[in-house]
């Protein structure tokens, strides 16, 4: 009887180790005094200092944040509209096609999305002379197209649980459909919209593949910079940078999770109260 728990626990430990030891070792080595990535030379924060004084890295970080901010915001607006439309308008011409097109980026290999975006921008530049140069705008546009689907999925799930009668009540009390949207629908699904935005933001901040296809000179985002630096060998300042990114992304995911979880808990609690009132 004693052997099985030991086996299970060791398998679990091995699994977790497989996932997290590399990240942990990276974090530990980011505080390494030595220049050599594999030799421990004592504790130091000098790579963090050199990181913050590195203009190239800071510029890439700023660009990444700008792209993530703009693309997440636009993706949230578009994705929320799509999510609401898919739930509220159950019958319109081409609904199945629309729903398929919206969710396609989820299953599409990133390389395909990347290369097709690139081809599109090149052709567009030939036909209408825009975009003349790839960079911030093209990367942002590409990020919007693939992060929108995450917002749509989250909003759609929330809309399916929302009580239609609340919107009807607002309409009954004199509000036109667009007023109902702003007065009732959006406030009720706001937690889902917020967590959708956070998802889109972190996904954009992380992306390498699609960014590398759609970017151009001067458009080096942080993940791209790290990728190019690593090609020349892992340096401790990359470890420091990656540690910071783990911190930022981890915080983002955690906050999104808490927001979703809290909204869900409140919803369940309200449902339970309503159920109790029904008895």
């Amino acid at each position: 009887m004693k052997r099985r728990p030991v086996f299970l626990i060791s398998m679990l430990a091995f699994g977790f180790a497989f996932f997290y030891v590399p990240i942990l070792s990276m974090i530990v080595y980011s505080f390494n005094e030595s220049r050599l990535a594999t030799v421990w030379g004592g504790f130091s924060t000098r790579w963090y200092e050199s990181l913050f004084s590195n203009k190239q890295i800071m510029a890439a970080l700023l660009l990444s944040l700008k792209i993530a901010l703009v693309s997440a915001t636009i993706a949230t607006i578009l994705g929320t509209m799509a999510g609401i439309a898919l739930v509220r308008f159950t019958r319109f011409r081409g609904r199945i096609l629309f729903s398929g097109l919206v969710t396609a980026p989820l299953i599409m290999p990133e390389v395909i999305t990347g290369i097709s975006s690139l081809m599109f921008f090149i052709m567009l530049a030939e036909w209408v002379g825009w975009p003349g140069q790839r960079g911030f705008t093209t990367v942002t546009l590409a990020h919007i197209t693939f992060s929108m689907v995450f917002v749509t999925t989250v909003v759609q799930a929330r809309m399916l649980q929302a009580d239609r009668a609340i919107e009807e009540a607002a309409m009954d009390l004199g509000s036109r459909p667009w007023q109902v949207l702003f007065d009732v629908t959006l406030p009720v699904i706001f937690p889902a919209i917020l967590s959708g935005w956070l998802l889109a933001f972190t996904i954009s901040l992380d992306d390498v593949v699609i960014t590398s296809f759609t970017t151009g000179p001067g458009g080096t985002t942080l993940p791209l910079l790290i990728w190019s630096k690593v090609k020349l060998g892992v340096t401790p300042d990359v470890n420091a940078l990656a540690t910071l990114m783990v911190l930022v992304v981890g915080t983002g995911v955690l906050v999104a999770g808490i927001v979703l979880n809290r909204a869900e808990r409140r919803r369940v609690q309200d449902a339970r109260l309503a159920y109790r009132a029904n008895e």
Partner: peptide, 15 residues
């Protein structure tokens, strides 16, 4: 929204 008719919903539908 233009009818002088208001409804009390079964689920109350409070905001």
């Amino acid at each position: 929204w233009s009818r002088p008719v208001h409804m009390m919903f079964q689920s109350y539908a409070l905001f």
